[in-house]
């Protein structure tokens, strides 16, 4: 289970962008979170990915309450969740080649020896050809870079995936290919998915159920 209970989150002074949001994902379930841009759904996704500490509320990950966020979260909790962001250009260190970009989580967690095996398996799964793997981000297109970002999110074999507007910048074919790659990974591993977006048609087609942002924040007050 990935449970977000009564989350209020924001950025310092001023009104919080997320108020009293509650959402629960069953193991292996895929949930689409639908909302207009700027509504705070990306912030909630960051809270769920343990990247942003909420001002109030609790997050429970597979039965264990989350006590710390970002660097304070235990590594096992952080790496149980893979994240893909909207803008591939901003989500990649411009100095790293695609190979290193994808292998970085393995290096960071001291699993260097698994790199060749993981890359050989993941690159074709997300549709990256060997000649692309030696390039740096500015030498590939947005679509190709987003494929690398998905591979990076999958490299530690997370039990949960959070895709924040993963396909918003991409053409129809690349979007369909990335969604297919996510679904293939989920079918093989049984991982759960939180897909955040503003396109109802896409989320309805992709996920088991779609939740509207408004209902999410209203549920607590009912």
């Amino acid at each position: 289970m990935l449970e977000l209970h009564d989350i209020t989150a924001g950025y310092g002074r001023g009104a919080p962008v997320v108020r009293n949001a509650t959402l629960a994902l069953a193991p292996g379930e895929s949930v689409g979170l639908l909302g207009p841009s700027g509504c705070g759904k990306s912030t909630l996704a960051r809270v769920a990915a343990l990247l942003h500490r909420p001002e109030a509320g609790t997050v429970t990950l597979d039965g264990d309450p989350v006590r710390g966020w970002r660097y304070r979260a235990p590594r096992t909790q952080r790496t149980a969740i893979g994240v893909v962001f909207q803008q591939p250009r901003l989500s990649c260190d411009p100095r790293l080649r695609l190979t290193d970009l994808i292998a970085e989580p393995l290096r960071a967690t001291g699993r260097r020896d698994e790199i060749p095996e993981c890359l050989a398996e993941l690159a074709p799964a997300v549709g990256l050809t060997p000649d692309l793997m030696d390039r740096r981000p500015h030498e590939v297109s947005d679509g190709q870079l987003q494929r690398a970002c998905l591979a990076r999110a999958l490299v530690l074999r997370p039990r949960w995936l959070i895709c924040d507007e993963m396909t918003a910048m991409l053409d129809a074919s690349t979007a369909a290919a990335l969604v297919a790659a996510v679904e293939e990974y989920r079918a093989a591993t049984g991982a759960g998915l939180l897909a955040v977006g503003h396109d109802q048609v896409l989320l309805d087609r992709w996920c088991d159920r779609t939740v509207h942002w408004k209902k999410l924040t209203a549920a607590v007050h009912e």
Binding site: A172, S173, T174, A176, A177, V201, L202
Partner: peptide, 17 residues
């Protein structure tokens, strides 16, 4: 292929890159 990749159509990508 591009049209068929849309989520309200077949939602299948064009193979390859």
């Amino acid at each position: 292929g591009l049209l068929q990749a849309l989520p309200h159509r077949a939602f299948t990508p064009i193979p390859g890159m």
